[in-house]
Design a protein around this nucleic acid. Structure first.
Length: 585
RNA sequence: CGGAUAAUAGCGCAGGGGUUAGCGUACAAGUCUGGGGGACUUGGGGUCGGCGGUUCAAAUCCGCCUUAUCCGACCA
């Protein structure tokens, strides 16, 4: 590629709003261009990198038996109504009517479409197992896109779907994905960890997320350095020490102005662990069949020193969605914010979820539902009831649930996830096969995603310095950047031709620009191997070869340059290949 | 969806009721220069986001709308 003919240009200054380095360089180097909030075009450089990532993904998916397909972005709403997600998913999914007034959606994932395909294909156990995948555009109307390609609305995703006759088969393909994902990310040069995760709206039971750890990440990951426990904070657990005592008689006391746990604890001269806090949320519950929706107050009871993890609470309450409650909604149920508990409240009007920290402690101080009053010695089971669950948020410093060592909290970006779906979709959409025993059984499914654009964004974040990007050669848009600084272009043209003929991907800076401009552009685009033709080395019949990654400089004779460059490419590729990660579940 | 901020040349910014709206950079032409965003000269590029209002006069003040960014809620 001749730079004189390249579609994109570099920018001296970052467009305003580019808040993280990787994003800034992707914009300034001309890899991507924003069209709207969370909507980006890929320019030639970005598209080349994305294509390389996709090819790595393809190779690895094919390696574990995946068959590539392509499903439509536009889906008739009917299949989404079959699974109920037409109703349970809110504004995240774009919807429209076609010219005949049929409900249509822009598929934000493809469980419905693939299950429709599968029910037509799979009739016998003899056809199982199967696994298909696609690399395709998704649109999710995210309420808060940010950080360039990290969190967008339209994006490219690799999604694969597995079909098995039994759980053992599912676990096998799940394990294959588990390892393959490590191979994919490490083949791109991106370090990551797998964490136990929430299944969210996908349903199913077992799930892992692949996290690239970075301060700009929005997910919080809880890890144990000692035993290797890792989990997304949404599902992370920890050891709770609970105070077991003889139950004492409940007693109402005056606690003026003590409407927060801190005030209450200091007023009574006790620690927050001796109190019970009520957190109010309103859950939205949607009927999968009819789409009817109703709200109900959820009262989460948790020990005063802990915080509620909303994702856990939502699960425990089986709500489609939860939001903080308004004061009136709390009052309506007979509770007084600041001095609230379910004791004496209209318990039929709300759902009570009790964290096990409260259920297994005794004699906690709780609200008396009267301004300025609390109860001493309240006890779960005796004074109030509710469903017991773990709804507490794990924090750094808490005790590891496995080994008891202190947990660490870090930030990460989710670049992939794998789910064991089970029969949620096959049941809902009648995707059955006939087993050896002659019986109809639902196909057991799994689904597995990788955010391709987000992967590039993370790579840009991982591989940059003060001058620009320095992506690994396996994902860089070109392998070699040929910079000619001499007037006479004959030598450069000859080298360019020779390298191209050898199948090397060359970005050739044939522009009439000053040396400084060419170097600065080369640095920001970050092609891994830079060949410089200048009088300085040319007078000895040499060219200068500089590696973007390390800054290492070598001089090679023009004769036999092609072979030297091929060798450099091999060495760059080896840096990545030597560090391919394999991990078994 | 709440809160905040903003929208002036491709990009980054200044101007803040009164001639023809500026600066840097980018762009075009020319001369010089030629190993780290080089110098000089000349030039082209703007319905100042949109609609409406106030005014003799609006890029500037006011209102509404749209769009974007950040924070929060949220996020498969």
């Amino acid at each position: 590629m001749r730079m004189s003919n390249m579609f994109s240009r570099t920018l001296r200054e970052a467009p305003s709003g580019a808040d993280c380095k990787g994003y800034e360089y992707l914009l300034r180097a001309g890899y991507i261009k924003q069209l709207g909030t969370g909507i980006f075009s890929l320019l030639p450089l970005g598209f080349r990198s994305i294509t390389k990532i996709q090819n790595i993904v393809r190779e690895e998916m094919n390696r574990i038996g995946g068959q590539e397909i392509l499903m439509p972005v536009v889906n008739p709403a009917d299949i989404w109504k079959e699974t109920g997600r037409y109703y349970s998913i809110d504004k995240e999914m774009a919807r429209f009517e076609d010219r005949c007034g049929r409900d249509m959606v822009l598929a934000m994932t493809h469980e419905e479409a693939v299950t429709d395909l599968a029910r037509g294909e799979i009739d016998s156990y003899k056809r199982l197992p199967l696994m298909v995948y696609q690399i395709q555009t998704k649109f999710r109307d995210d309420p808060r896109p940010r950080a360039g390609l990290i969190r967008v609305r339209e994006f490219t995703m690799k999604d694969s779907y597995s079909f098995d006759r039994d759980q053992a088969g599912l676990e096998k393909i799940y394990a294959a994905h588990y390892n393959t994902y490590f191979r994919i990310f490490s083949r791109c040069g991106l370090p990551c960890i797998a964490v136990a995760s929430d299944t969210g709206m996908m349903g199913g039971k077992v799930a892992h997320e692949y996290m690239y750890l970075t301060p700009i990440g929005e997910d919080t990951i809880i890890t144990c350095d000692k035993c290797g426990y890792t989990a997304n904070r949404q599902v992370a657990t920890f050891k709770k020490e609970c105070r077991k005592q003889e139950m004492k008689a409940i007693e109402k006391i005056e606690t003026p102005h003590a409407s927060t746990i801190d005030d209450l604890a200091s007023f009574l001269g006790i620690s927050p662990e001796e109190t019970c806090k009520a957190v109010f949320m309103v859950g939205s519950f949607v009927n999968d069949r009819t789409g009817e929706e109703h709200d109900k107050l959820i009262v989460a009871l948790i020990r005063g020193d802990l915080e509620v993890e909303e994702a856990k609470l939502q699960h425990a309450a089986k709500a489609n969605d939860i939001r903080p409650a308004h004061t009136e909604e709390i009052l309506e149920c007979g509770m007084v914010p600041g001095f609230a508990s379910p004791i004496g409240a209209k318990t039929e009007k709300f759902i009570t979820i009790v964290d096990d920290s409260v259920a297994y402690s005794n004699n906690l101080v709780a609200g008396a539902n009267e301004e300025g009053f609390h109860f001493l010695n309240t006890n779960f089971g005796r004074d109030f009831q509710g469903e017991v669950a773990d709804i507490a948020s794990a924090r750094g410093g808490y005790s590891c649930p496995v080994c008891g060592a202190p947990l660490t909290s870090s930030k990460g970006v989710e670049i992939g996830n794998i789910f064991q779906l089970g029969t949620k979709y096959s049941d809902a959409m009648n995707c059955f096969f006939q087993d050896e025993d002659g019986r109809q059984k639902p196909v057991i499914m799994g689904c597995y995603g990788i955010g391709i654009g987000r992967l590039l964004a993370c790579l840009a974040e991982e591989y940059n310095d003060d001058s620009g990007l320095k992506l690994p050669i396996v994902v860089a848009p070109y392998q070699v950047h040929l910079v000619s600084l001499v007037k006479d272009t004959a030598i450069a043209e000859k080298i360019y031709q020779e390298l191209e003929d050898a199948g090397i991907e060359v970005l050739y800076d044939d522009r009439k620009e000053s040396a400084g401009v060419k170097f600065a552009d080369a640095d920001i685009i970050g092609v891994p191997i830079r060949i410089t033709l200048g009088n300085r080395s040319l007078k000895d019949g040499n060219v200068e070869v500089k590696l973007r990654g390390t800054g290492e400089v070598t001089h090679y004779s023009i004769d036999g340059l092609k072979d030297q460059i091929l060798e450099e490419i091999r060495k760059e590729e080896k840096k990545i290949a030597d560090n391919i990660v394999e991990k078994n579940l």
